[in-house]
Amino acid sequence: MNSLFEELAAREAAARVRVEELEAEVAELSGKLGLARESLERLRIARETVAEVLAEMTPEKAAMGGDARQPATSAPVASAYAGAERQVIGVLAVPNWQPGMGPEVLPRVCRDIVEVVADAPGPVRAKQIVPRIGLPAETGKIECRRSKLKRLVERGWLDEDVPGLFTLARRRGGVSSNSR
């Protein structure tokens, strides 16, 4: 009979270990669930705040970039969000360049790219930009930045006269290269 009791004791010990492992997994998953809930709540609040701000914006404030304190003597900077509907479906992260706009309106990564291109002595390639903004020169990082460069070209911030070679758009300060 000792062998039966020994077998039951061994199974009980194995079951106890399994229960402890599952309790540890539950604790870990509870922590992950808590973090996911916090992230969800922050996103909900951000969405509601943006909707409130856009709902409160008048077309005049939107045309001035949302700053009603701008002096009347300066020309208002056209906003990418001018005339935005009250129900927002998407947001234009990289606005179309317009006279008076500076790189400070761009998302941080795009601003960094524009600054690197501006500091370069000539046209630059995506693989030259990646290490200058502090990223490893890996294919994925290069291709991601290349797509951002193409978006900046589409929106008027950069030029790509030769495929793959990027320069600042030649119409800085509201003067286009065609009007010179």
Rank of each mutant, 00 (worst) to 15 (best):
G140I: 06
R172N: 01
K127A: 11
T139G: 07
L33W: 12
V17L: 06
A46E: 11
L106C: 05
A15P: 13
V153L: 03
S39H: 14
N96G: 04
S177C: 14
E60W: 08
R18I: 12
L40A: 14
E85P: 12
R111P: 02
A68P: 15
P136K: 06
E60Q: 06
A9M: 06
L40D: 14
V109Y: 00
E6G: 01
W97D: 07
P107M: 06
P103T: 03
R108Q: 04
E28I: 14
G66Q: 07
S3R: 07
E7H: 14
G122D: 12
E160M: 08
P136W: 00
S176W: 14
R146K: 11
A78V: 15
A55K: 06
G34H: 13
E23I: 15
L158M: 00
G65L: 10
A27N: 03
Q128E: 01
S179D: 13
P59K: 06
R151S: 13
P103L: 12
E21C: 10
R37N: 06
V17E: 08
E85A: 14
L8K: 06
L149F: 04
P107C: 04
P103Y: 12
G31S: 05
R16Y: 14
Q87R: 15
E52D: 10
E6Y: 12
S176Q: 13
P107A: 08
R47Q: 10
E138S: 12
P103E: 15
L165G: 10
D112A: 05
S30V: 00
